[in-house]
Amino acid sequence: MQIHDLEQHFLSKIAEEIKIEPRDWMPDAYRKTLVRQISQHAHSEIVGMLPEGNWITRAPSLKRKAILIAKVQDEAGHGLYLYAATETLGTSREETINDLHTGKAKYSSIFNYPTLTWADMGAIGWLVDGAAIMNQVMLCRTSYGPYARAMVRICKEESFHQRQGFDILLSLSKGSPEQRAMCQDAINRWWWPSLMMFGPKDSDSTHSDQSMKWKIKRMSNDELRQRFIDMIAEQVKVLGMTLPDPDLKWNSERKHYDFGEINWNEFWNVVKGNGPCNKQRIAARKKAWDEGAWVREAAAAYAAKRKRNTQSSTLEAA
C-alpha cells in the first residue's frame, strides 16, 4: 500500500471508532504525540508520588497512614501501566525516564506545589485526583487501544482515591476550629492549581486541534475544566467550605458556573520550571535513579550469571 492509502485506512478506522493497536500503521506525528502524552502521563504518576509520600511518616492515624501508603503505591502501579503503554509505541522506559530527568519531557504542573499540611492529602485526593479523573474518563475512549485500556484500569482506582481524599476533608470539616481552618487553607492553595491541570485555554492550546481530530482527546481543555468546576462547586457545599474565587457564581442561562480568571502567568512559569517545587521534584527522581544504579547493575549481573549457569548445566546434561 502507498503511504496515502495507509493514511486513508488509518483515518477511516479513527472515524469508525476502531482502536489503533501497536502493530497497526499510524502517522509518525500520531505516534510522536502519543509517546509524548502517555510518557508524560506516566511521569506525572511517578513524580506525583512525592508530594503525597511527603506525609506518609506523619499521617495522623494508623488508618489514614495505611490508606495513604496504599494510594501512593497505586500511583507507582499506574506509572508502570503507562510506561508499558508507551513502550508499545517503540520507545524504552529508560529513554522516557531520561527525558524526564533532562527536562525534555514534562509532567503535570500540579506536582510542583508543596504539601504543607495534612489537609493537603485531602485536597489532593479530592481536587487533583478529581481533575485527573475528568481527563481520564475521557481518555478511556481515546483512539489508541493500549492507552484506552490502561485508563480503564486506572480510573477505577482513581475514583476510589478521590472519595478517600474527600473523606479526609470531611473529617477535618467536622473537627476542631484548627482542623476546619487547615481544611479551608488547603482548598485555598490547591483550587487554582487544580484548574490549571486541564491545560491552557482552547485558544492557546497548541496540540489540541490535531489530537481532537485523531480522537486522542475527546473533549477540549475548557470543556473539561467547566465540568470539573460545576462538580466541585456543588461538592464544596457538603464540606461547608468555600472556593477561593469571588467570581464563582451559578449562571442559570448557561447552566454552568461562571468563574474568575486563571493566573496564566503563574501557569506558564510552573510549566517552564519555575514553580515552588520543580527543582526538588526532579532532583528527588534523579537521586533515586542515580543512587539505584548499582542495584540495577547488580540485578543484571546476577541474572546474567544465572543464565550462563543454566546454559552450561544444560550443555553438561546434553
Binding site: I46, M49, L50, G53, I56, T57, I69, V72, Q73, A76, G79, L80, Y83, A284, K287, A288, E291, G292, A293, V295, R296
Partner: peptide, 9 residues
C-alpha cells in the same frame, strides 16, 4: 521512607 525513592519502580 523509601516510597517514591526506590532504585527501580
Amino acid at each position: 521512607e523509601w516510597c517514591g525513592h526506590g532504585p527501580v519502580l
